[in-house]
Design a protein around this nucleic acid. Structure first.
Lengths: 211, 211
DNA sequence: TTGCCCGTGTGACAAATGTTACTGTGGCTG
DNA sequence: CAGCCACAGTAACATTTGTCACACGGGCAA
């Protein structure tokens, strides 16, 4: 069994063997380096990407280039937007940037419709992806609609810690400010308050979560 | 041909005849009065609803009962959330309230999986619904993430006018404030400014759009 | 070492929004 | 008609957030 099949099986354990064979036969394996933007607002979507390794962040871009984080994607996941847009010749509504070097499988959108009909495990994966991403976006709406910046910052830090699986967050205040669409000073201010409340320890380029 | 079939065909012209027959054979026709809440956050979803007539609004509820409007649903549409949640025994993440008296078809979720496989027109409808609702929610995120209240109010008024198909919006400032999760005073203030800029005429319980 | 850049801390102020309180007005009902 | 209530307008103030200005210190490169 080739290395590619093994990593596909590992990342997508629910896929049937026949589906995996079809994927391997019809799609190309690709790598992306941290910092690369692999999908941009307004771009046409020609393929869907299944992530085998690494991490992506999906965000919405404002008119003046502001970013707004929607969610992270990791091994075993796919971008809901690309699955959705695939049917029509649709342009992307979001931007995807690589956080940690990514290995992925690129699937021509033409095949997806067929698989939906022929492969139960693909169908279930797509529906599951829709549902979880929709819920995640709803949670994002909650946060910005109902919560003030301090709570949003806490939520952001927790989510980030969860995504990277550790309590040390290696981000500058500036980077956090970008993703929350606020300013560095505000982030510094709020982090300082959190430190006083004993929720975090602050270091240069690192925030240590104590919650 | 029964009256029910005719209204189904009118609202969902892309459904195949076989699909319409199956719908009629397997689902129940229901009516709801304006103001009724037909789906609530946390409730289990047992069926999907296709709207034949009237209007619903879908909103997210905050912890203290705040509302936040996501989008409107009208004839020919269905709630994306209920389509998505249907696969698993899933609870609703949103609340649906009737704006104008609604006539609808209620479809047991058990059938939907089957139809996805057997009816091309159903499959396309579901995918289309996912996509458009997802985009709509992304637009909502844009608005609250990147825009100030004055722009959001303008957007809200335009969207409302579009949904009801007229330039006269019969809502109190209080109702608008609820949907934008702000206070009546703020809405009054901003509307007054819009009136001075010549964008609206204000009347009791009515806002006349001039854009 | 010196100088520089980046990340951070912080004070002062501006702007937007939320809150409180009070006024007026139109229409409905007893 | 009188009283009441929902809706709207508005002033004054509090709070939150954004912006500007500047200071400090660590680490790296010339």
């Amino acid at each position: 069994m080739s290395e590619e099949i093994i990593s596909l099986k590992n990342a997508f354990p629910n896929f049937s063997n026949e589906l995996i064979e079809e994927i391997v036969a019809n799609s190309s394996f690709q790598s992306f380096k941290a910092g690369e933007v692999i999908m941009r607002t307004g771009q046409y979507i020609k393929s869907t990407i299944l992530i085998l390794k690494g991490q992506l962040k999906i965000y919405r871009e404002g008119e003046d280039g502001e970013e707004f984080l929607m969610y992270y994607l990791q091994a075993g996941q796919a971008c809901a937007i690309s699955l959705i847009c695939s049917t029509k010749n649709q342009t992307s509504q979001i931007t995807a940037k690589v956080v940690e070097d990514v290995e992925a499988v690129s699937i021509p959108i033409a095949l997806m419709d067929k698989w939906m009909m022929n492969h139960r495990s693909w169908y279930e994966f797509v529906i599951y992806t829709y549902r979880t991403r929709f819920e995640e976006v709803l949670e994002v709406v909650d946060n910005i609609a109902f919560r003030a910046m301090d709570e949003r910052l806490e939520f952001y830090l927790k989510r980030h810690a969860k995504a990277c699986g550790c309590k040390e967050i290696n981000l500058s205040h500036q980077e956090i400010a970008l993703e929350l669409n606020t300013s560095r000073e505000v982030v510094s201010r709020l982090l300082k308050k959190m430190e006083q409340r004993g929720l975090v320890n602050l270091h240069r380029n690192q925030i240590e979560l104590l919650m």
